[in-house]
Write a protein that binds this DNA or RNA. Sequence first.
RNA 1: CGGGACGUGGCGAAGUUUGGUAUCGCGCUUGGUUUGGGACCAAGAUGCCGCAGGUUCGAAUCCUGUCGUCCCGACCA
Length: 481
Amino acid sequence: MAEQGKKKLVEAITPMEIDFARWYTDVVINAELVEYTSVKGCLVIRPYGYAIWEHMQRIMDGMFKATGHENVCMPMFIPESLLQKEKDHVAGFAPEVAWVTHGGAEKLEERLCVRPTSETLFCEHYAHIVQSWRDLPKLYNQWVSVVRWEKTTRPFLRTREFLWQEGHTIHATAKEAIAETERMLGVYQTFFEETLAIPVVTGAKTESDKFAGAVTTLALEALMHDGKALQVGTSHYFGDGFAKAFGIQYTGKDNQLVHAFQTSWGTTTRMIGAVIMAHGDDSGLVLPPAVAPAQVVVIPIAAQKAGVMDTANTLTARLQSFCRAKIDASDNSPGWKFAQHEMQGVPIRLEIGPRDIEQQQCVLVRRDTRGKTIVPLAELEAVIPQMLQDVHDSLYAKALANQQNHTYRCTSLDEIRQTLRDNGDGFVYAMWCGDEACEDSVKEATGVGSRCIPYAQEQIAPTCVCCGKPAKHMVCWAKAY
RNA sequence: CGGGACGUGGCGAAGUUUGGUAUCGCGCUUGGUUUGGGACCAAGAUGCCGCAGGUUCGAAUCCUGUCGUCCCGACCA
């Protein structure tokens, strides 16, 4: 009874098993990542959520710089006539753009679209600055927000305004541009594995699922706890289609005037959603150490007892010389703090109280396993970095095991239905003839859609899972966000 | 954009059927006692009942519209 009274005080998180969607929203709110505003799909990213984004940004931006990219910043507005220049592109995006029609009280002669993506702006710019083969390549990236007037919205996963990075590169040859598309997919994959501890399936999108205006779209798909796929990054090869539409030509070494070849690639704040749904549990967020705003939280026990706060403060300063550490000196009870920092996914909790000080030790508790270790204070410099690495490694291993346990290989539509019913949602690997009608039929019949044609191809069967004609590819199918 | 649910101090709810003084719990503030898994006592503060119209002597409650949130579908990073 007393326990029941206590539980009522706890900010309830709906258990995943009961309702995964509610679990997700409970976590984003209770971990203080976002706050709703009065505009649908436009959320406040709160300091804790934004700090996670800043770490993602910092690390990824370093990877872009290391591969020779420069940051730029394009305007937010695109004149309608500019957006119209590439017909597939405009057809893809027109349904979800927001328009500016007035400046103050004056109606604009030409309405301006709020960028849903910036290909057209980059193209206009490239048309001006690219004249010679000596001007190529240009390897640009920008960190901005874009607006897409989505009908249904969910924090981080689908918002009307979202933060992202969009890389836009232009090259002399198709070969170079294709290599860039693949290289950046690889950069993303490394980032997901080594920074976010999330395994991904990489491959090409099918024709029907390509980016509007692209020749090919490469994508990274991650599997969430509920067995649904989340597209967490894309890398597009445009050929010279945009260059032709926008008149981007250069004079080659042979004095011939030719069109240039382009790419674009992007990742968004959706990655925060991926972290939540790939690592989180019923106590809240579980953050990979690389992007955790605090990697260690110090919790003084019996803080007003002589020496405790002094020791805790000194210890925190010491930790800060080799990791991101903070102290929770609020007057909440220790139990409250434990729950709060678990909710926020802090990788390691360090408890220090009178008993520990007497013994010159402290208690370390890992967020992911809740494993407790008593460690001599003198050994923290060695123990904590190792523990952070262990947390990362076991998060990755656990996510990978989850992905593998929920990856099914099927040879018929019935088998797909049966497997999903018996084992829950996940990735379904099955063969495909390449016909769009079959792609649609699979979705219709089983509920899973094509996510990508994985690079890691397997010969599961000689024939299409749907029509029985000779198969061209193995496709990764899944229910998706 | 279709189907369903819901908007009441910061949060979660009761009150709406049957119109009549705005309720409860948590949180917050101040003081004190506490502190190894969401502490306790005392005293306080906080409401245009989502918003706009309408009906009525009187609306949180009835009617119309609108905005937002959640869930399920179709579309999308």
